[in-house]
Amino acid sequence: MTQALVALRKDALLQWRTRGRFVAVFVFGATALLLFSFAIGPSAGALRQHAAGFLWLALMLASTLALGDSFHGEMENRALEGLVLLPASPVALYYGKALANWAQLALLGVALVPFMVVLYDAPPGGALPLIGLILLGTAGLSFPGTLYAAMTVQVRGSQTLLPLLLFPLVVPVLLAAVSATSLVMTGDPMDQLRSWTLLLVCFDLIYASLCGLLFGRVVES
């Protein structure tokens, strides 16, 4: 447990020191949001209706950059092998990295919300539920994404492989997050929010544990 916190602190510190990269990823996300509106056209109704979808699509695309980046520090100095040689368990390393990535993605999501509100004229609904959903959804991206990033960063062609592997896996996250966010923003007449939230929580729990379990094998080899 403490090992995970130490790893988290290391990764959070690393992210803070390279916060220029966060700005770059944020700009990418904002650009994506803009491009989506160009693709749909200036129809206010259509934009407002699909705002939640655009937000999560932008987050998903940006996550491939952020996640892929998260192991670059280790790769540059072959530090990945050095980390594994430490007495710290690889599982702790995984959770430290995954939690740091989660925080970064959640921050990214929250930062993109004002863009969504302005570009699509989409009222954000309740702030707390929205933040909660962003936390749940980005966790679903971060936990499997960190595992895949550890794999693909060591292999050529990693930029294509990471989204190729991650996107089909997180289809339930996309569906649930978009539906739930839409409901938060436009109202929930049939009380479906609970079901979608439950789905997200289950996905997060399953993959946080499964990926943690398997991470050791991934970096050992």
């Binding site: 499997p144 896996l169 649930a176 539906s179 399953i206 398997l214 991934v218 080899s221």
Partner: peptide, 25 residues
């Protein structure tokens, strides 16, 4: 061998989750 086994396990576990989320949606 190890990586594709890990990836296959992760992908297969997702099957029921994907099914239910799409069914709901």
């Amino acid at each position: 061998a190890v990586w594709s086994a890990v990836a296959a396990i992760i992908a297969y576990v997702d099957v029921p989750i994907v099914y239910f989320s799409v069914k709901w949606w």
